[in-house]
Design a protein around this nucleic acid. Structure first.
Length: 400
DNA sequence: CCTCCACTGGAAACCTAGGCTC
DNA sequence: GAGCCTAGGTTTCCAGTGGAGG
């Protein structure tokens, strides 16, 4: 047997067993975590509570639209208020049900309905039904059990951008057909203040009965929020003042984004623990910032469909910005090498726009006079990152 | 001021996978 | 199990377009 102290795994296991962790409860740094106390949002909590409170007496609350940049506490406030509301309703005999759906994650109309169905305990097959049939099953179940529901649609601007406002229209109209004291109250959460400009006026008027705007957090507020999370999440004295300041500063630079600040802290803590440091320092936060960005890009690339990957690969084979025509020619070449059927240029042009939206490439449309009008496509991430992300793909890796 | 390039991007048709009905 | 229906992705078709060069 070898000397146990020379085995790196033993060190790691020892540390885990002896409780030499920096963390007390790392869940407190997760996105889904709802703290007991939400700071600097008293006003908004009261407002949301007031607007939703009629549900307790069985009356339909006004629909509510909430605006604010990412990480300004919109989601956490809504979930907090709704949790409390449901808790309170249990002491009475009002049957309040809630469904929270992030419409960017559940990216199609059908998936949104199916998530709502799961929350309400309605069985829906994951495909094969028409939207209206799925919708009917949900509403008839609500009627049957006279359910009073609050639907929270997070990142609602994504839904409207990708599928239009049909579903919202159906939701708002559903109340007319719901009897037996059932109702649907809608809470929409949006990062984009301008999104309602694209809504049908009928949808807007029924969705926008109340409106609340969340302003960004200041550096001082972020610092206070971080301190409170640290108290729950870390062993006392394990996070340096400099690290807290840097997290708060970076979050503030990113339009007062508390989620970003907390994420940085979590990853910094994990990095510090992994290298066996005694405390979390600002150097760990800087490292964390890079690591988060790396992971984001890696995940974005790996979850692309195969032709998205090949399009990206085609873009990455050019050093300079190239027009759509050249990218497409390269893309054809790549697909031929793999023996795949290439998509049309129209579709690849669409894929390029999608890659642009993900921030992997920039593809502004430019006009070069007699040279025509085209997208000017340039890779926005290092070329090695593209290769590293694609080398795990069974189909693509043979090319690298 | 007009032309004309090399696309863009909207709209509709088409395809496929999968559930439903009888 | 045949035939029907729908959502979501793709193809087909094509009118529209910004601006350098004439």
């Amino acid at each position: 047997m070898s000397n146990p102290s020379s085995d790196p795994l033993n060190d790691i296991f020892d540390r885990a067993i002896n409780g030499e962790s920096l963390f007390l409860n790392r869940n407190a740094l997760r996105n889904e975590f709802i703290p007991n106390q939400i700071h600097f949002r008293d006003e908004q909590i009261k407002n949301v509570g007031q607007i939703l409170s009629p549900a307790l007496t069985g009356h339909k609350p006004s629909s509510l639209l909430i605006y604010g940049k990412t990480g300004t506490g919109k989601t956490v406030v809504v979930r907090y208020v709704i949790n409390r509301l449901v808790e309170r309703s249990k002491t009475m005999d009002t049957n309040i049900r809630t469904a929270y759906v992030n419409t960017r994650v559940a990216s199609t109309e059908y998936r949104i309905l199916s998530e709502v169905a799961i929350e309400l305990g309605v069985a829906l097959p994951f495909t094969g039904l028409s939207l209206s049939e799925a919708f009917n099953r949900i509403t008839s179940n609500m009627r049957e059990h006279s359910l009073k529901t609050i639907f929270v649609l997070d990142e609602i601007d994504f839904l409207v951008k990708s599928s239009g406002d049909n579903l919202l229209y159906e939701f708002s109209r559903a109340n007319e057909n719901l009897t037996n004291n059932a109702f649907i109250a809608l809470v929409g959460i949006s990062n984009d203040l301008k999104f309602k400009e694209t809504l049908d006026p009928r949808v807007l008027s029924s969705l926008n009965e109340e409106e609340i705007v969340f302003s960004p957090y200041s550096v001082d507020e972020l610092r206070a929020i971080l301190r409170e999370r640290i108290e729950v999440a870390f062993v006392p004295g394990k996070v340096s003042e400099a690290a807290v300041n840097l997290c708060a500063g970076m979050g503030a630079a990113e339009h007062g984004d508390a989620r970003r600040a907390v994420d940085l802290l979590r990853v910094a803590g994990e990095l510090a623990e992994r290298e066996g440091a005694q405390t979390v320092e600002d150097s760990h936060v800087r490292e964390a910032s890079k690591s988060i960005e790396r992971d984001r890009v890696l995940e974005a690339i790996q979850s692309l469909p195969i032709h998205g990957k090949l399009t990206l690969l085609a873009v990455s084979s050019f050093k300079e910005a190239e027009n759509t025509g050249h990218i497409y020619a390269k893309y054809i070449e790549v697909t031929k090498q793999l023996g795949l059927e290439p998509l049309t240029q129209r579709r690849v042009s669409g894929l390029l726009s999608e890659l642009d939206l993900l921030g992997l490439v920039s593809a502004p449309v430019v006009s070069k006079g007699r040279m025509g009008r085209s997208k000017k496509v340039r890779l926005e991430i290092p070329q090695q990152v593209v290769e590293a992300s694609l080398k795990d793909d069974e189909t693509v890796k043979t090319l690298l």
